[in-house]
Design a protein around this nucleic acid. Structure first.
Lengths: 212, 212
DNA sequence: TCCCAATATATACTGAGTATATTTAAGGGC
DNA sequence: GCCCTTAAATATACTCAGTATATATTGGGA
């Protein structure tokens, strides 16, 4: 499968990975803002332009799994069981991720550092907001598509907005609670409680439409 | 009242206004991104540092009425009628603003240029997102306070998130519709329809709490 | 081997935002 | 009016992300 990659591509990916690893290490040591692109380039032993070649923006060296998360959510909607509404599918996804201790909803370890580092930088927070908006827009399209509604349907945008808002609050509150109590179980219960409330609200908002 | 302002303050405000007016004119002529701070300073006939003195960030010369909007929303909640829940108060505000053709929900004229200019600039969109998040956080505090709930109550954050998300979608969809049809009446009906749906969802989500 | 295209790199630039020191001018006490 | 303090404006020099462009290097294919 992926074995027949030519040397050129292999070297390209190796360079990219080297830059990414170096950047991550430096961010870990000193935070995002106080590391400059020049330092990353020097530490990774590549030219400055090479860094921009692989990562158009500095923030891209930090957030490199956006697509994975989007795919996870979209798959949950597209491959939902029969009789499950698109909105309910997002609720089920939350419960499934918690049940299987998925890395995206883990509270401790790498995830904790990741969130703390992101929250300590205005640039990273701005990028996170941008990704959230992009995701909301894409989610509206997926929802409309999965419900055989026209693309751009206002209700799809409302549903997407309410769902993303709910997930966002659920994440933040769970993280906040874990930081206070260091009790992962309690944090997860809080996460699901907010999800259940918010999704119930979204279902009520979109009652009598194809989305709920 | 405001008459006993000394000359120093008067000059300060005049300088600020001059910079703001100059910047607005230039943004109107050529868009936000293609106007540099140096050009604004030169056109307003002040030093470059003076601009940063009054407006720490370039975006602040564009968004200068944030507080007004926040006050409008918070007042609607704090001064709501008896028997009106905090969440319902935000719904009532939307209807009131539309009824009185308030400038913040006007579709044509300055508002239209304002939104188009903001949407054409990544920097302005980023700042708008930041303001939205700030507003959401502040709204959560006001909601909790107005409902005699503890500050930081997860339900307050959920309510704030759902409300802001609803308003955001309502604005966008109404603006989009107006751009297509140029029918202000239809756009306003769309705005209120989304508001009513979204707020109904928020009420359902927060059922049996102090917020709904 | 030679040629083409992808990748890496060097150089020079733009423009926002910061740090800091200096100048200018207004208000207050005498 | 004169002096002193302080706010505001300014000048200068800097940092750093991001762009433009030209050149060098290297792997793949003929």
């Amino acid at each position: 499968m992926d074995e027949k990659i030519d040397r050129r591509t292999r070297k390209r990916l190796a360079t990219r990975q080297s830059i990414s690893d170096t950047a991550t290490r430096l961010f870990l040591e000193r935070g995002f803002d106080s590391v400059t692109i020049d330092e990353i380039a020097a530490a990774a032993d590549v030219g400055r332009m090479t860094v921009f070649n692989h990562f158009p923006r500095k923030e891209d060296m930090f957030f490199d799994r956006e697509e994975e998360i989007q795919a996870l959510a979209f798959d949950a909607i597209r491959k939902r069981g029969p009789g499950v509404s698109p909105i309910e599918a997002t609720r089920k996804l939350a419960h499934d991720l918690v049940t299987q201790d998925h890395e995206f909803v883990m509270l401790s370890g790498d995830t904790s550092w990741f969130i703390k580092t992101a929250m300590a930088s205005e640039a990273l927070k701005a990028r996170a907001r941008e990704m959230r908006d992009d995701f909301t827009r894409a989610l509206a399209i997926v929802l409309a598509d999965a419900s055989n509604q026209p693309t751009g349907d206002p209700n799809a945008h409302l549903a997407a907005g309410l769902i993303v808002s709910t997930w966002n609050v659920a994440f933040s509150e769970a993280q906040k609670l874990f930081d206070c109590t260091r009790d992962a179980g309690e944090a997860k219960r809080c996460f699901l409680a907010v999800i259940d409330r918010g999704i119930a609200g979204a279902v009520a908002a979109l009652a009598k439409t194809a989305y709920a």
